[in-house]
């Protein structure tokens, strides 16, 4: 059951993240990217399969879960902070220099 819930969560995060990334203003795009990062991190984590109560700490659990996806996701979370921060600054700079926060340079709506 938890599997289904996680899969649904990944699907919702992906769909909503992508929808926001398809907007034409920078702020929703950044929020969308955050949601998509959650989805990707959760998916990466899920590739280690679910094992509630079995943390990858030697001695603390009988059959520790796969630590490698966790290590990868841990660094990914920190890096996505760096990416969000850079994007936030870029969008701020674009807004201040051009007067609007539109991400498209063409005029089609």
């Amino acid at each position: 059951m938890t599997e289904l819930l996680i899969a649904l969560a990944i699907g919702t995060l992906t769909a909503c993240g992508l929808y926001l990334m398809l907007r034409r203003r920078s702020f929703p795009v950044i929020l969308g990217l955050s949601l998509l990062s959650y989805a990707v991190n959760l998916f990466l984590f899920a590739s280690g399969r679910l094992a509630p109560g079995q943390p990858p700490i030697i001695g603390a659990s009988a059959a520790p879960t796969d630590p490698l996806p966790q290590a990868l996701v841990l660094t990914a979370i920190v890096i996505s902070f760096g990416m969000t921060a850079v994007l936030a600054l870029l969008s701020l700079g674009a807004y201040l220099t051009t007067g609007d926060d539109c991400t498209d340079t063409d005029d089609a709506a």
């Binding site: 599997e3 289904l4 996680i6 899969a7 649904l8 990944i10 699907g11 919702t12 995060l13 992906t14 769909a15 909503c16 993240g17 992508l18 929808y19 398809l22 989805a39 959760l42 998916f43 899920a46 590739s47 399969r49 679910l50």
Partner: peptide, 24 residues
Amino acid sequence: DGALALTVGAGAAALAYALLTRAP
């Protein structure tokens, strides 16, 4: 946009579910 996002999201969900219900 909604249809596109939903399609890819559904794909991601299906993939995750298939992955989680199988052993490596």
